[in-house]
């Protein structure tokens, strides 16, 4: 049993107990790694009357191999995603490696990234590019939301009151993937813009994800539909890569802000996307020349 005291802090030991507590105490703010929430608390932007600790929920702190996908508990910190999932989920692992600093990656979680739903969150582009699904629990049961339907606006998501994100299921890579992030240094930067790409050579499919260049993380459907020389990969050239970059940039809806201008973001996305496509294409077809 969890005990709530005057400084209300709930420490559930199981997800069922957590959603029940959340239903009974709607004022309780969930906390996982605290790397978003505690900044707000320290600066008095948030003054939670009560908090609900998710770090005691063993169910949220592991990932499982589901055959063609990996189900990642919402409380698995970035450091583990980078260290343990780089082979099966290369884009997500690469993104996780760029988050903050080692200290932040030891605490910060995908669940917190999704719940915060910042358009700049680094977890989002790889989840979009790979077609992940978000698992959400409440006292009425569990539902799954396709990642494309999760983001509703800047810092707004499909997550409702009384709900907790329990896991994210990410399809295993069917080919090479890339994650590129633009910022002023290699660590500790909120992305100026970011781009994830997943290539599935057998299904002849591209998946895209754009970060920090719109009110929500975006995909680039026109770019995914680009006609590529799947049957004779040697005919791939820089013009195709550049056209892909243009289509990705066209899908973005960036603004001018302190980190960069809209024009710069579009330009940088075009460069990143073309580079990412060249890389995945070369990797895929160097390994298995047809």
């Amino acid at each position: 049993m969890s005990v709530a005291t005057r400084a209300d802090f709930h420490r559930p030991a199981a997800v069922g107990e957590a959603v029940r507590l959340l239903a009974e105490h709607p004022e309780a703010v969930p906390v996982a790694g605290g790397t978003d929430l505690m900044v707000a608390v320290n600066y008095r932007h948030a003054r939670p009357e009560a908090m609900l600790d998710l770090t005691g929920l063993a169910e949220l702190r592991d990932w499982t191999d589901e055959g063609d996908a990996v189900r990642i508990g919402s409380g698995v910190p970035y450091a583990r995603i980078t260290a343990e999932l780089a082979t099966v989920l290369p884009a997500l692992a690469a993104a996780a490696r760029t988050v903050g600093s080692p200290q932040i990656r030891n605490r910060g979680t995908l669940g917190g990234n999704l719940a915060t739903a910042s358009p700049a969150g680094d977890g989002h582009p790889p989840l979009l590019a790979t077609g992940a699904t978000v698992e959400i629990a409440s006292t009425s049961g569990t539902r799954t939301v396709p990642i494309g339907e999760f983001y509703l606006g800047p810092k707004r998501s499909a997550l409702g009151p009384g709900e907790l994100i329990t896991a994210v299921t990410v399809p295993k890579a069917a080919g090479p993937q890339q994650f590129l992030k633009v910022g002023t240094r290699n660590a500790m930067v909120i992305a100026v813009c970011s781009f994830a790409l997943a290539l599935d050579p057998d299904a002849r499919r591209l998946g895209t994800g754009i970060g920090s260049a719109g009110p929500v993380p975006l995909t680039a459907p026109d770019a995914e539909a680009l006609d590529l020389p799947w049957s004779s990969p040697g005919r791939f050239d820089d013009a195709l890569a550049a056209e892909f970059g243009r289509r990705v940039a066209a899908a973005a809806r960036p603004i001018d802000d302190v980190r960069g201008t809209a024009d710069y973001r579009r330009h940088a996305l075009a460069v990143c996307a073309a580079r990412a496509l060249r890389r995945v294409w070369t990797t895929a077809h160097d390994r298995s020349p047809r």
């Binding site: 906390v31 605290g34 790397t35 505690m38 600790d53 030891n106 605490r107």
Partner: peptide
């Protein structure tokens, strides 16, 4: 170090 891993103490709630 929190249970052996480096973290920012300013971002951990004591009650955790």
């Amino acid at each position: 170090l929190l249970d052996g891993a480096p973290v920012c103490a300013c971002l951990v709630a004591t009650a955790q």
